[in-house]
Design a protein around this nucleic acid. Structure first.
Lengths: 250, 250
DNA sequence: TCTACTTCGAGAGCGCCGCTCTCTGATACG
DNA sequence: CGTATCAGAGAGCGGCGCTCTCGAAGTAGA
């Protein structure tokens, strides 16, 4: 089906043969290959949105106008295609959250927190199947490759920066008499080793409450726990996030 | 395979023929049928625990020593088998939570809250696949039958009773100046219509923070978000639930 | 007790699925 | 220009959910 792209690029190459070194032959193949890969992912995303997590390679291949075995030239297995989608999704939600955070006056910690939280919810509602891929039930024995965890941390790092900015501005600090249980304290201390989360242990612990609560609330809404319970979901979400902002100290 | 049960029961019936009315012939069939149904569910649960949510009817049938089509005498489809498992699981976790709540001095609201929360986490850790079935990504176009929602509410009703007992004892009340956004207030007022949740709107709203946070924390742990982040998970969970107890007012 | 009816399991088969292997024709390159 | 590389097609494997038909066995009523 997409052979017209190949043909077009081949014609393009032929027309420009007089100018060598602008593009090697190899890079043409790889460009076509990259475009095909992107189109496969785009179609796969459409199927994901339509049919939920039961992504069928054969259905994607049909939509591409190719036979299923041909897809294996681009992704060695269904899991690898899913991994690619997951990686893209992690980066997409991180982009959204980073943008939302940056759109607010950097001194307004509470505003940045709320903006970031709503960005997560909006992205999740707009891309429910992809959100479920990231934050829902993990696929049975799917082992997340290293790249995905690196992309996953981008979103949480935004919250880490919020905490650090809060500490830097004096807004956030360990409260007098605030003590953490030994085990919690040990984990928080270890996490401080990561530069993005280098804040006093009690502050970090409160931040994790927020981290859990944002995604917990979004997942509850998306996974249907609010059906027949909460009607005004954006209002409820906003209220919850403000309440947690108070807990954190924003 | 299980024809030995049929045979045994038939023999039993033959031996007791002198005493009519103790068991009608029809009830023998239905007893065997009930035992078969239970065994199918038991095997299905084992498969669920082993292979995750990709439950295969054919595999269950193989373990039962029957051909796959025979299973359809007991469950009209794979979804119906899953529904049965879900229903059982809702009741199992509700049993655990109710027991945990009842095990603590009824006047000790904070203790009851913590006991119930830990019961949820313990049950989830002991039955991860079933927990995922209940609180994880919903199956694409699986429509939860009415029975399941009735069973699902048993667990949340425990938290409702906690709130009501708190209000009755004077421990919980709307705080001076505490106001809810219009949308949230409307939802809370509607929910008060359910007897189990008839507490002042602001108290109910705080209770829902707890509801979301318990399951949010458990899901995060179970779905792997704490990997390489939280090592001391029980301590972290306990800390989180105590923090939320403060928020609620327990 | 004999007969009509119900129930159950087996078997074959349908159209899906992920995945593999082999073959062919087009492209890239020395 | 010949050779090596690569993309796609096609056939096929075993597994899946599910349907239909058939015969054997159990049940119930005269």
């Amino acid at each position: 089906m997409l052979s017209f792209i190949v043909n077009a690029l081949t014609m393009w190459q032929t027309q420009h043969m007089a100018e060598p070194h602008t593009t090697t032959a190899g890079s043409i193949r790889s460009r076509v290959r990259a475009e095909m890969t992107e189109e496969i992912k785009a179609i796969a995303r459409r199927h994901l949105a339509a049919d939920g997590a039961n992504l069928s390679l054969r259905a994607v291949a049909r939509d591409m106008g190719m036979v299923s075995s041909a897809l294996y030239r681009y992704f060695p297995s269904r899991d690898d295609l899913l991994t690619a989608l997951i990686l893209d999704a992690y980066n997409a939600i991180a982009d959204a959250v980073e943008r939302a955070d940056a759109a607010v006056d950097q001194a307004d910690l509470r505003g940045r927190w709320l903006s970031a939280c709503h960005a997560i919810r909006r992205w999740a509602l707009a891309n429910p199947s992809e959100y479920a891929l990231l934050y829902g039930t993990p696929v049975p024995d799917y082992k997340a490759p290293r790249d995905t965890t690196a992309a996953a941390i981008r979103t949480t790092a935004v919250f880490g920066r919020l905490l650090r900015d809060g500490v830097a501005s004096g807004r956030l600090a360990a409260r007098p008499g605030e003590r953490l249980p030994r085990g919690v304290r040990a984990d928080m201390r270890r996490l401080r080793g990561t530069e993005a989360f280098d804040v006093p242990e009690p502050v970090l612990a409160r931040g994790m409450t927020g981290w859990v609560h944002v995604f917990g609330t979004v997942s509850f809404e998306l996974f249907g726990r609010f059906n027949t319970v909460i009607e005004e979901r954006e209002a409820f979400f906003d209220h919850q996030m403000r309440l947690i902002a108070d807990v954190i100290g924003f």
